[in-house]
């Protein structure tokens, strides 16, 4: 409390004096908000069992802050594995899509052109599906050729440029 007034009297070191036990250690997800949103449906597609398991555990254990650490680590590892694969196989189109999201307030409807390129890459290389829960498989928005939100002109331009560059290579 006195540190508010006499800050110089406190010795302060940037080290964790009370570290977690080794068995709780897990590599945290390092992707920021736009890449996570971009990858979210693919994370859901691969990690659905782990996520459901985690939520079931929380439901059964009244929040499960301590009880569900194991399930939580599994969720984190699964998400990390999806992001690793996306970076390995679809880095360029992933980046195209999340940079569009970042320019357009994270509105998925404004980035359909780049999303299409990204989807094609993921479907081909990772064999993950994209599915909005509760919507029929043939009514999914990424299959709609004429959606209400057509995307921004800048996204369309960047996407066509991207396709031109990648067709040449």
């Amino acid at each position: 409390m006195l540190g508010q007034y006499f800050s110089s009297r406190h010795e302060w070191e940037n080290q964790d004096n009370n570290p977690l036990p080794k068995e709780f250690e897990v590599d945290e997800v390092g992707a920021t908000s736009a890449p996570l949103l971009s990858a979210s449906y693919f994370i859901g597609a691969r990690c659905r069992p782990y996520n459901d398991d985690f939520l079931k555990c929380k439901d059964e254990n009244n929040g499960g802050t301590i009880e569900c650490l194991k399930e939580g680590r599994r969720v984190t590892r699964c998400a990390v594995s999806v992001l690793t694969d996306l970076n390995k196989h679809c880095f360029d189109s992933f980046k195209l899509h999340y940079e569009c999201l970042e320019q357009n307030n994270h509105h998925l409807g404004h980035c359909r052109s780049s999303e299409k390129i990204f989807n094609a890459c993921v479907f081909q290389n990772l064999k993950l599906s994209k599915e909005i829960p509760g919507v029929a498989k043939d009514k999914q928005i990424h299959l709609n050729e004429n959606p209400i939100y057509q995307g921004t002109s800048n996204d369309k331009k960047l996407s066509s440029d991207f396709l031109k560059v990648h067709e040449k290579n």
């Binding site: 390092g30 992707a31 920021t32 908000s33 890449p35 690793t84 970076n87 980046k95």
Partner: peptide, 22 residues
């Protein structure tokens, strides 16, 4: 999430697709 982005990248609107956090 924007606070988390700042903690991960060190810039206010920075974005990274690194899978594992530092």
């Amino acid at each position: 999430m924007m606070k988390r982005d700042f903690n991960l990248t060190g810039t206010v609107r920075g974005q990274t697709s690194e899978s594992v956090a530092p």
